[in-house]
Structure formats: C-alpha cells, structure tokens
Simulated assay, not measured.
Amino acid sequence: MPKKRIVIAATAAVVAIALGVTGFTLMNNANTDESTNTVSPAAETATVTKTDLVERVETKGTLNHGKAATYGTQLTGTITSLAAPGTKLSVGTEMMRVNERPVFTMHGKVPAWRNFEEGMSDGHDVMQLEQNLQALGYFEDEPDEHYGWATASAVAQWQKDNGFEWSTTLELGRVVFVPGDVQVSAQQAKVGDAASTSVLEVTGTSKVVTAEVPSNMRSLLPVGAKVDVKLPDSTTTQAVVESVDPPVEQEDKSGQKTVKVPVQLSLTDPAAAEAYADVTVNVATTRTIATGVLAVPVRALLAEPGGKYAVEVIKNGVPTRVQVELGAFADDLVEITSGDLHEGDKVVVGE
C-alpha cells in the first residue's frame, strides 16, 4: 500500500503520532511481500523541474465606459436644447444651446476660464483653442500660446460659419474643453433650466475595466501592464493598464478601513465585450516569484518533526524519503533550495 501524504498544516504532535504508527507498521511487515517496499503502480508521481515560479493574482472589476464627469457652461441664460444620452461629443460638436445659441465641445485638459480675445496674455488655453481650430480647418499656422491675428481671424470665421456675427472675441462658456472624445451618459439638467456648470454627465466612448485593488497589488499593475479579463460568458480577453490613481482609504460596513488603488484598463479588443455594459468581470495578472529554480508540486511535500519537510523520490522503483528545504511558493509549486534532489527525479505526490 502507498504511504499517505501528511497534511502540511498538521501539528507537530499529529506528525509524531503518524510517524510512530508508520514505523510500527514497517517493523511488523519487514518480512512480508517485497512489493510493500516498492512504489505502487497506482501512485501518482511528478517530475522535478527547473522552472520559473509564477503567481497568478485575481481581483474583481467593472466593465463600463469609465468614470463619469460633469460638464456645463459659464454662460448665463436658459437651456433650450441638450445633447441626448449616447451622443458622441467630439471637436466642434454642439453639446447644448443656451438662449438658442450653441455651446460646443473641444479637446483640451485646461478648462476655459476667460474670454479669448485680442490683447489677452499668452497661455496654454490659447494653444488648445488653436489646435482645435486647426483640426476644424480654420487655423493654418503652427499652434502656440499667443492670441495673434491668425487666431483672431480663425475664431471670427468659425463663429460666422456657426451662425454668429463676425467677431474676433470668443466669449467664456461658448466652448467647453473635454479631455478627448466623450459620450453623454446622463443629463444633469433639463430644457428650461438655467444654464450652469453641471449640465451633462459624460464618459469615454470606449468600454474600460475599472477596479479598486489592494495596495499590495499596486506593483503588479503598472501603467502598460497586460492583464487577462474574464467576461461573464467565461471567455477571456486582454486589457492594458491605462491609468493608476493615488491610493484612497475606504471604510466597509463594519467600520474597518482599507487602502485601495483605483485602476483603469483598456481592452485590446473592444469588440469582445460589445455585448456587455456595467457588469462584473475578473481581472487576472501574474508575477514571477523566482526564475530557474528547482521545483516540485506542493502535494509532494511530507511534514517532518520540527517544522521540516521531505519528499519521496523514486529510485530504482523504490520510494526514498529525502529531507528538503523550501523556498518560494507560487500557485501549486514550491521551490526546493537544498536536499538530495535533482532535475528529472520522480517524486510521489499525494491525492
């Protein structure tokens, strides 16, 4: 009969009793059939290998269009028209009307905070405006931070083409800068309300995965890292870490505080998730614990007195108990740092 694996988590007392019983059995069967000293043909074995130990870590995430942001206008007046949910807002798109005059979106990270007009001081907001006017075909020079005649004439022509009088001044609130193409996810105001800076809620146009991971996983998910995303239908697609926000402290229902790191991932194949929105997905990533090490399955380990471990090595068909010292663990493998064990050896593994 093959010897049972001794559970690693067993106490020293249980291990000692088990070893005592085993010793008694061996002494009383020393003269029995020789087959008891050889490994059973049914015993499962594994090959000792030199390999990399790779740990797989999983967490939950949400597949949606990303974190929502709210935009509006500094203009005063009455909202007379609003972009509907699902509307894509790009460079030069009308997002609303105030007193029946359009308000447009343009790309830029700096919010509009002053009129654009001749004689204004230089600034990055001027460059943003010129870049957008160039994209719309109105500004032909190299964009810079100076509001010169080329800028003024481009502003005047663009306004005239959109139903305004010829004017080299673009009033504050006529243009709303957003980071890139967005889509309307909800209306925060309705037609007839007074114009304000909280009118439309928008998200990105592509689906992303957002997750809040424990702080100890932060190093596993640097910007640019590739991860696996398991969808509700159990298919797996790849994603890339797009952004990592600063850690935030959260409190659960029991009052216990934890630190989580918000992470956003973009899908490499957006079509794979086309059928899903606002669903929970599994996010999995791996990290290498050790490279080129001698390793055996964790199930091959036998507990020894004094917190030590051994494995049974098959030599000439006979299982020989060999004491070993352990290194890193990763999934179902463990590193062997010392002991009479070699690559290619066969070891008995438990059921």
Rank of each mutant, 00 (worst) to 15 (best):
T11W: 05
G61N: 01
V7M: 02
A13I: 08
V263I: 11
Q131R: 14
E58Y: 04
V184L: 10
V155E: 02
E55V: 04
A10D: 15
G77D: 07
G72T: 05
T73W: 03
W158P: 01
E118K: 15
L341Y: 11
K230M: 05
A12C: 03
K230R: 14
T49E: 14
Q250F: 09
G173P: 03
V322N: 06
G137D: 04
E94A: 11
V296N: 04
H146N: 14
V293F: 05
M96L: 15
G307E: 14
A300K: 02
A150K: 13
V281W: 00
S198M: 09
R174F: 04
G173Q: 08
V241L: 05
V349A: 03
A69W: 01
T32V: 10
T258P: 00
Q238M: 07
E212P: 00
M1G: 13
V184N: 08
G255R: 05
V98W: 11
A150Y: 11
T93N: 11
L302P: 01
A195L: 09
A12F: 05
S185E: 11
V240M: 06
T205H: 03
P2E: 13
K308F: 10
W149F: 13
L170R: 01
L341T: 11
P85E: 09
E142R: 11
T205M: 03
K50W: 05
G180W: 04
F116C: 02
M1H: 12
G224A: 06
G292E: 11
V293L: 08
S219Y: 12
T236A: 03
E249D: 12
A186M: 07
L301M: 13
E351P: 00
R5L: 06
V318M: 14
K308R: 15
A300V: 07
L172I: 10
V298N: 10
G173M: 09
